[in-house]
Design a protein around this nucleic acid. Structure first.
Lengths: 304, 304
DNA sequence: ATCCTGGATAGTATATTCCTATTCAATGTA
DNA sequence: TACATTGAATAGGAATATACTATCCAGGAT
């Protein structure tokens, strides 16, 4: 248990720098006895003599004091660094941002967001991890993530979220599918066909809920937690799929062409949002990224 | 002006290490509210949130807190290093000893003293500087030296000295001098001959004082602040000299042989002593060197 | 001798830190 | 659903540390 204080060190260094207790006190805007006292205590607690008191002409360092003077200056610098680093986490847009992201949203949005943001704020490093909803929420709650990009589904009260964009679900078909030329497609039209389910919470429940709401039972022939696996299977005409996340390209990894069609049913849209721990105080960096995402999404997905 | 304390940092780190305020308190032998309070203040003063309070299961770090945890541990280690370094200046025989030494005494005693002492205490480094009496005293007073080896002449009250050995003055003659075969020599026998004076304070005054006490006036033909210069001149038969410091060899630098003869007058002996600043508190290293010199001198020059 | 400079000390008010006791929110369990 | 348990936060009060003003004291300067 350390028994001396940074304050004592500050006063000691100030006095050593100026060779005078009174001058140090003046500089520090405290009274002369305060400095005198602090130094006396420090000498006592460290068990060494730091100064030789030269009556009427200030103080001069003992050899031991001279060595300690250097070390104390170092330590104070170190302490200020820590303070700055803590403080700048809150006052400047620098430092590290720990970000979580729902798996399917990751490759679609994060490359652009991260690249643009760090272009505006080069002093920022972003640590990104993809995870499923539950892990994202846990990550927020236990402090693994500062922020998380996820769907506004089943969020507990502990996390607070701001919507960024809304996305309507759509039907994904192989190019050769009989309905690939249709305008929009009703769930009833297709419910009997083999369905490839994107099986990752909370999406799974959301998709199945859409069928349920229409009084239908999907014919799940395959399920995978990987979006690209689902697209690949649809490309191979294993079945159709129902998705929200919409990659720009229409090719699967193995080069087959896909077609998307809107649902004719008026369905509940999915909301992508930025979440953070409700009770935690956001850093300025967090706010900055939050705002940045807000504008980026409104520019690119302004009307849902 | 730093507004957080090492104590706060200690409590914070302890709590972060254990993921629990209560456990930290237990470990630190303080009450739980003390730790809680310290952390709350630290968060306030640094302006960041360090912990997420997980009700009924301790606390977990925010990403910012995690970064600060590392830095705080570093800083505490640094602070302990400083404490150790200060403390060990007083509790272990390590560190640096700043030593002053009267010019003529240097080559005679210091090589052996320094070598032997650092053999016993390998962790010690000795910084040695030779100077004349006034500079030694100033050096002690203004903190340049921890200790000084010098003659017990004209010492102000500010420095405290312990005698190490007494040396009687002697006459130095060239080998070919008419009195080189004599048993002892009176100042009266030789006062008219040319005298080579070792001209360095306080020796100068001491030597001249010896003549004065005998009611004699020396015939100073040459004076030099260098002992070897004086010996060389005497070797060349420029004159005789009166000295206290007694090198072992009887050859000058240029290879001429010298002879020493005791004074027949009962004279005041010169005392070599170890001096330090009276009001300063000695470190253990200083004490150790002091004692070491005490025994070394009593072994080698036990009877004066 | 006398004044001036500059650190130490005395006495006191205020802030901080600590303690114990209690409260409060969340968890896990009958 | 109630109830004990866990673990942090808060309240209130005692002890400690830190700050201040006023004064003292030793050593240089005049």
């Amino acid at each position: 248990m350390l028994n001396y204080t940074l304050r004592q060190l500050e006063y000691f260094v100030a006095a050593a720098d100026r060779g005078s207790v009174a001058r140090a006190a003046e500089r520090l805007n405290v009274s002369q006895p305060s400095v005198s006292n602090a130094i006396a205590k420090l000498e006592d607690q460290l068990g060494v003599q730091l100064f030789i008191r030269q009556h009427a002409q200030g103080v001069s360092l003992t050899p031991t004091g001279r060595r300690l003077h250097m070390e104390a200056r170092d330590l104070l610098r170190h302490a200020e660094d820590l303070f700055d680093s803590a403080h700048s986490a809150n006052s400047a847009i620098t430092g590290e941002l720990s970000l979580g992201c729902f798996v399917t949203l990751g490759p679609l949005f994060m490359p652009a967001l991260v690249t643009l943001f760090t272009q505006h704020h080069p002093a920022v490093t972003i640590r990104l991890r993809e995870a499923i909803q539950d892990d994202l929420i846990n990550g927020l709650v236990n402090g693994e993530f500062d922020l998380a990009l996820l769907y506004d589904l089943n969020l507990p009260d502990a996390v607070e979220s701001k919507p960024l964009a809304r996305f309507a679900p759509y039907i994904l078909l192989p190019e050769a599918h009989r309905l690939s030329g249709a305008g929009d497609i009703s769930l009833t039209d297709i419910a009997d066909e083999p369905f490839v389910l994107l099986d990752v919470p909370p999406s799974r429940g959301y998709f199945l809920g859409l069928f349920e709401a229409a009084g239908l039972q999907p014919n799940v022939i395959f399920s995978s937690p990987s979006l690209e696996m689902v697209r690949g299977l649809v490309g191979q005409s294993v079945g159709y799929s129902l998705l929200v996340t919409r990659p720009r390209g229409d090719l699967t990894y193995d080069g087959l062409r896909l077609v998307t069609r809107p649902l004719s049913e008026a369905t509940q849209e999915s909301t992508v949002c930025m979440a953070r721990l409700a009770k935690s105080r956001p850093t300025r960096l967090m706010d900055a990224f939050d705002n940045f995402c807000q504008t980026w999404f409104s520019e690119h997905y302004g009307d849902g």
